[in-house]
Amino acid sequence: MRVDLVLANWHLFAQGAWLTIQLTALALAIGFCIALPAGIARARRKRFVSPAINAYVYLFRGTPLLVQAFLIYYGLAQFDWIRGSWAWAYLRDPWWCALIAFSLNSGAYATEIIRGAVETAPRGELEAASALGLSDRQRDWLVLIPSALRRALPQYGNEVVFMLHGSVVASVIALQDILGAGRTLNARYYLAYEGFLTAAALYMAITFAIVGTFRLIERRYLRHLAVANAR
């Protein structure tokens, strides 16, 4: 073990960790903004909208994230009309390509999570809301969505971890994320073990932080279930 070489290159890993966390967090946020309306529309089986969302979900869940990233980064760059358009200012940059791929991918998975949570809304809850004289809109925003999001929490926690691990794809489109730092160490000093072990340890630390955070959130928002289980 050449720990000294890892320490001498700590800035590579620090920069990589920042990029990984930044990309993962932004992609999850954008993915969530896609998934909330899309998931509810899917659960309601809205005409026209639902098949389109269905196609999106199938496309992005049916193909590996790596392939999606390659298509967006190398694929789109082949078309002159794309390189000549306003979008090129963003697509030129690997950071934006990664963010677009990750967001769309995470959005597709989160859509299915939210769809499931909305579909399993207890009838009694909704009937109670109507009985209290809430309008449909009030019922959705005050009862259905909050309770669906609570039910979605454990599954969504998984999605956050999957997105973090999926973000390694950034390192194959010329971004220096945590894995990129490991690969640089490997390529420069031929330290496969040290570089990748450091990367693995960093991913694990972030994963534990995510899992711990979700445990706290679940303890707060799923308290009613915890009490029920305790009995």
């Binding site: 190398y74 760059a77 082949q78 390189r83 090129w88 030129r92 940059d93 690997p94 010329a174």
Partner: peptide, 8 residues
Amino acid sequence: YLDLVSGR
């Protein structure tokens, strides 16, 4: 080479 051609 791919990224040189694409202008990145």
